[in-house]
Amino acid sequence: AAAAAVLPLALSACGGEDGGNTNADGTWEPNGPIEITAPAGTGGGWDTLARTSARLLESEGLVDQSIQVVNKPGAGGAIGWAYIAGNEGDPQKLFVTSPPILLVPMAGDSEYDHEDFTPIARLATDYIVYLVPADSELETFDDLVETVDEGDANIGGGSAPGSMDHVALAGAIDAAGGNAAAASYVPFDGGGEAMTALLGGHVDAAVVGVSEAAGMLEAGELRALAVSSPEPVEAIADVPTLLDQDVDFTFDIWRGVMAPSGLDEAQVTYYEDLFADLLETQAWQEESASLGWTDAYQNSADFGAFLDEKRSEFTEILTEVGLQ
């Protein structure tokens, strides 16, 4: 009888079909490698967040298990989301996320939206930069708008048509008094590809996240006409905001972590606490500052409510600039 009573507790402590260990006190922890999916290719904002988080979680000793980053590019993120959706209930698979998780489904280009996944935590806010080649004749954002109105600008972005970078471009052009519909938007699979196309002369300008562009801006390979933040960003302090140029528009790229559906409360709590601890480390503070990120932590419940709110806001923006 004693052995029979101990058996359920032993099985619980050792873990089971949930892919982790459930302890006697009801807490949970993974018992194997954690996988973080970036739903795009290397070099973009999703990839940067996934790899930065994984590296620092390990180097700061916050996890006992290894963390693997996998890239699932394609369809503006939809390929990666389908992969995660196919792993319902697996608490050792995470993915990084940002506005396209709302915008791509709204455009009808993904059968999955944010409600099909488990919000874990919002981590940071990034902003958009409007880039041109270092030797471009364009000096201000108004110069770019004038070129767009003349029908002479192909502008690359790291997200699908009607998604994050496209909305940030169209909204800014509209606020500057230009014709957003005249902008020839060229989608790429991530900001890294968009900047490569810009360097190669395949597009005239590009719209990407600050964290994606910081390295090339510092190296002088590209030049930023404006940033979409309400105030200058420390990592690119010499780049004027749109507001500085009398363009009444801001756009923030919130970045966070989600998981498949079907996680229980203990599993969600483990990851909420894990990422909260990460944001408190000096290593994260230093690296996020160099990438132009601003910490904006929200737990699972708050992040879920935030996503619902942002979907409503995006509906208004898309209607206003004629993208919906």
Score class of each variant (00 low, 15 high):
Ala124His: 12
Thr125Asp: 15
Tyr127Phe: 15
Val129His: 09
Pro133Thr: 00
Ala134Trp: 00
Leu138Ile: 02
Glu139Met: 05
Glu139Gly: 03
Thr140Gly: 02
Thr140Leu: 05
Thr140Asp: 04
Asp142Glu: 13
Asp143Pro: 02
Asp143Phe: 04
Leu144Pro: 03
Glu146Trp: 01
Glu146Ser: 10
Thr147Val: 13
Thr147Lys: 15
Asp149Lys: 02
Asp149Gln: 04
Glu150Gly: 13
Glu150Thr: 07
Gly151Leu: 05
Gly151Arg: 03
Gly151Ile: 03
Asp152Pro: 08
Asp152Met: 09
Asn154Trp: 05
Gly157Gln: 11
Gly157Asn: 08
Gly158Arg: 06
Gly158Ala: 09
Gly162His: 11
Ser163Val: 03
Ser163Cys: 06
Ser163Tyr: 05
Met164His: 10
Met164Glu: 14
Met164Ala: 13
Asp165Tyr: 09
Ala168Glu: 09
Ala168Pro: 14
Ala168Ile: 10
Ala168His: 12
Leu169Trp: 09
Gly171Asn: 11
Gly171Pro: 09
Ala172Ser: 15
Ala172Phe: 14
Ile173His: 11
Asp174Ser: 06
Asp174Leu: 01
Gly177Ser: 02
Gly177Gln: 03
Ala180Phe: 09
Ala182Ile: 14
Ala183Gln: 08
Ala183Pro: 11
Ser184Asp: 15
Ser184Pro: 02
Tyr185Gly: 02
Val186Tyr: 07
Val186Ala: 07
Val186Phe: 06
Phe188Asn: 04
Gly191Ser: 10
Gly192Asp: 00
Gly192Met: 01
Glu193Met: 15
Ala194Glu: 03
Ala194Phe: 01
Ala197Pro: 08
Leu198Val: 00
Gly200Ala: 08
Gly200Met: 04
Gly201Met: 10
Gly201Ile: 09
His202Asn: 15
His202Pro: 05
Val203Asp: 05
Val203Tyr: 04
Val203Cys: 04
Asp204Lys: 13
Asp204Val: 08
Ala206Asp: 06
Ala206Asn: 07
Val207Ile: 14
Val208Arg: 03
Val208Leu: 04
Gly209Ser: 14
Gly209Glu: 10
Ser211Thr: 11
Ala213Pro: 03
Ala213Glu: 01
Ala213Asn: 03
Ala219Phe: 00
Ala219Thr: 01
Gly220Tyr: 00
Glu221Tyr: 00
Arg223Gln: 08
Arg223Cys: 01
Leu225Pro: 00
Ala226Asp: 12
Ser228Gly: 08
Glu231Thr: 11
Pro232Val: 14
Ala235Leu: 10
Ile236Gln: 11
Ile236Ala: 07
Ala237Cys: 04
Asp238Asn: 13
Thr241Gln: 13
